[in-house]
Amino acid sequence: MTCEELLKALNDYVDDETVLAVCREFAAHLAGCNPCRVVVDNIRSTIRLYKAGEPYPMPPEFQARMRDALRAKWAETFPPAGS
């Protein structure tokens, strides 16, 4: 496996979706190629970084506005009995 081929197989390797044979080739390449090893590591870090990100706080005034809009929609969709 060349560095070029490794780059193409990167997703499957990182996602653990790949068949064992490719995995073995991949691992064999990584064992002898430090730059590729660092790249794979960087990509895993990149994904972890975004997954670990804090949620974006919703502005409280929007939250109140949305609640009112949802209640209005709810009243239309589920009209109270007898109305």
């Binding site: 730059p35 660092v38 790249v39 590591d41 960087n42 870090s45 990149t46 972890r48 970084l49 975004y50 670990a52 990100g53 804090e54």
Partner: peptide, 13 residues
Amino acid sequence: IAPWRDDPGELAE
């Protein structure tokens, strides 16, 4: 191509 200085979990915070 370089290893990162910090752990991604710490960076995210």
